[in-house]
Amino acid sequence: MLPLIVDTDTGSDDAVALLLAAASGLGDIRAVTTVAGNVPLATGTRNALISLEVAGRDDIPVHPGCECPMTRMLSTAQHVHGHDGMGDISLPAPVRDAQPEHAVDVLLNYPHRHPGELTLVTLGPLTNLAVALLRDRELLGRYRHVYCMAGAADMRGNISATAEFNVWADPEAARVVLESATPEQVTWIGWDVSRKDAVMTPADQLWLEQLGTPMATFAHRVNRTLAEWAQAVTGLAGYDLPDPVAMAVALRPELIAEQEQAYVGVSLGQDTRGQLIIDRRRCAPAPNVTLVRRVDEQGFKQLLFDTCAPEGHR
């Protein structure tokens, strides 16, 4: 199993990603760190604890991190994921509390104790990672690899015309990460991948619901408000799952169908905040990140269904 640290702003799709990491049999989560993004920090931390309990992994420590972006006021996505980030379905409170060690310290300390062993998967704004990088510029290289659900490589956004939410929420943090990254160390899976290859159609949603397990029911129900928002705003044939498809790539890199290495920057401008600036010219600086562009849609969905299926049917 892949040793993992997961950094999350736990909204409804993050919750499904945590199920994949905790219950697919492919991941070995050593710690979960939380950051403000989809919801305020305390809410996201609560949601991470709940999600791990649903996966049967209440032994995994959860560490709260940064309560706001590096230089900006917090802007959440509660209009997408619900006020509680989990579809507003009145989930019960978690049975345990988060750990006192700050998320940034966890991101710094774990790879020092296990150099080159751990894979980091970020599912929210990159604030925690960026703050950690300001303390240790070599941090990315201390991980086996870093996968980020971040950006939109085709410049088609979900929070603005051209920006994806995680990068838009804290573009300064995204810039810090990109300034330290190399394609061998860091892979970004953007909203363009989710929009193309991770859309849960009505038939997919019905299949998930009819699996009937606690995990399947949870994964279906918490995305209720996301489904409503997707229908009203994005015009997709269902709701998409950006964080689960990013987690799937980390767990099973063979799902990648198309990728590129490129030099990527981030706009901090008022009208283009969070937009990726990708320089593919021959005179461009050396690539700093690997961008996943397409994944195996059926392979991703099968992984999700298998993870949520009853024992003996996986």
Rank of each mutant, 00 (worst) to 15 (best):
P214A: 04
V233F: 11
A42W: 12
H145Y: 06
E228W: 07
T307Q: 08
G274E: 10
D28T: 01
N128S: 02
K196A: 14
S12V: 01
W207Y: 09
G37V: 11
S51H: 06
E184K: 09
L49Y: 05
L26E: 14
M149I: 12
V292W: 01
A248R: 00
G274M: 06
C308G: 09
T127D: 02
A248S: 07
A23N: 05
A203W: 00
I60K: 01
V146C: 14
S180Y: 01
F305Y: 12
T290N: 00
E164T: 04
R293T: 12
A174D: 15
L129A: 03
H102Y: 01
R57C: 08
Q99N: 02
G27S: 08
I278E: 13
M149V: 14
P111A: 07
R142H: 13
A42L: 14
R195F: 00
K196F: 02
Y143R: 13
Q302C: 14
W207H: 15
G190Q: 10
A23L: 09
G235V: 11
L107T: 08
D204A: 14
A55M: 13
A98G: 01
I189T: 04
A284F: 10
L208G: 13
G212Q: 07
V121P: 00
C148M: 14
A103N: 05
V80C: 06
